[in-house]
Nucleic acid binder design. Sequence first.
DNA 1: CAGTGGTCTAGACCACGAG
DNA 2: TCGTGGTCTAGACCACTGT
Lengths: 245, 245
Amino acid sequence: MTATALAGDARLPLYQRLAETLRYDLTQGTRRPGDRMPSENALAAEYGLAPGTVRQALSALVDDGLLERFHGRGTFVRRPSFDRSLFRFFRFRDSSGEWRIPESRILKRTVEPAPSHIARQLGIKDGEPAITMSRLRILSDAPVLAEEIWLPKARFEAFLDLSESEIGPLLYPVYDSRCGQLVARAEETLTAEAARPEIARLLRVDRNAPVIVIDRLAKGFDDTPLEWRRSQGRADQFHYHTEIR
Amino acid sequence: MTATALAGDARLPLYQRLAETLRYDLTQGTRRPGDRMPSENALAAEYGLAPGTVRQALSALVDDGLLERFHGRGTFVRRPSFDRSLFRFFRFRDSSGEWRIPESRILKRTVEPAPSHIARQLGIKDGEPAITMSRLRILSDAPVLAEEIWLPKARFEAFLDLSESEIGPLLYPVYDSRCGQLVARAEETLTAEAARPEIARLLRVDRNAPVIVIDRLAKGFDDTPLEWRRSQGRADQFHYHTEIR
DNA sequence: CAGTGGTCTAGACCACGAG
DNA sequence: TCGTGGTCTAGACCACTGT
């Protein structure tokens, strides 16, 4: 109907161009997690497209995990949740069998020049100051994970002012509320190795016992690397399951 | 237009009922991998539906991995491929860096009563006869995987008659051509443990070195369990990578 | 070229959620 | 009851593939 003010290559399908336009709003802060999107009809009118075309664009973003649809309520910007993290394959339950978030004991929190392999991951210069932290995650008095965490100091200055009691077991809400850094997604890498002496002591396993090592790089909506962490847990507590075809 | 002869609950959407009808054809042998499906228009005419509705049904099956669409050519029954297997995260390349299928050396091939944990997986009775096989997978003279395989004897009688030279590194084509058993999908479970003495010897690693253990249960189109296997490889060769949000 | 799937339209009607 | 997304129709036209 009206002239469509859609970004992107005019040779691409309209639904793709609309999807890209909306995706841009999501990766910039224009629309935030939890926001409701305009209705399909409203978007159709705004961009001069048929409702079906708008629907196709929204479906693409839903498939991509950026939006969430609720029949009768609307379409919403999805809050990232890390339900798909590899950690869900650790058999870390309560003694009663319930899933619980392990408590956290901070063993160390300092500022250090970033070693080169960390700096590369965080997209900062070799040796630039970084906040590093060691934590032990504990469930029913049993140590379950040993974590080493690195943050670029420039973005997380405020994190240093927090007292330990202000830092709960979940860090991402703290990054958001205290440092204005919102984690949108992450990449995880899994391997296994023989427990080094310090890790063995922390996890209370034999030296050289097999441990699962999960490295995670967390990123913001604009793809900026925000946090790198390495977590290690007992291999005998870990069973990853998947279906293939 | 015409009376639709669609299976399923009449309260469900038409596209779902069509999808279920077609899925049934696929899980039974009516349509086999590689077959071309009737065109969208042909299906629409056959079932008295609008083309868009048929398209929606096919899309569901494509998303499900049962069909494959090719623009201008048609829609085809997908051949299962195990590209998504966890084994792709082993750094098993040739010395030149190319991906190659490891050779296979069969160490043992016998018939034994199925131990209960295997029988449970294969859906046969505890102690029922099963074919079991040990293989060592080798790449450029280096052992990379140790495998233990179990098959229900009733379905795989013909497998016993084969000479070792007739069994290549890839078993599933042999199961199909020689035993009429077509693998459609599989479930894999991954964990890590310390190498037991025999595995350490086969893989030429230290005793108690960490090894990745992948258990796979392969199933037919009708969901019958066909093969159980446990594969073990060096943990230092394994790096699983995934993205989450 | 004919036949396939891919995009897009402009509606209708239904099912669900919230006020 | 109203507004939302979900299903469905009956086309038109485009883009790709094979002959």
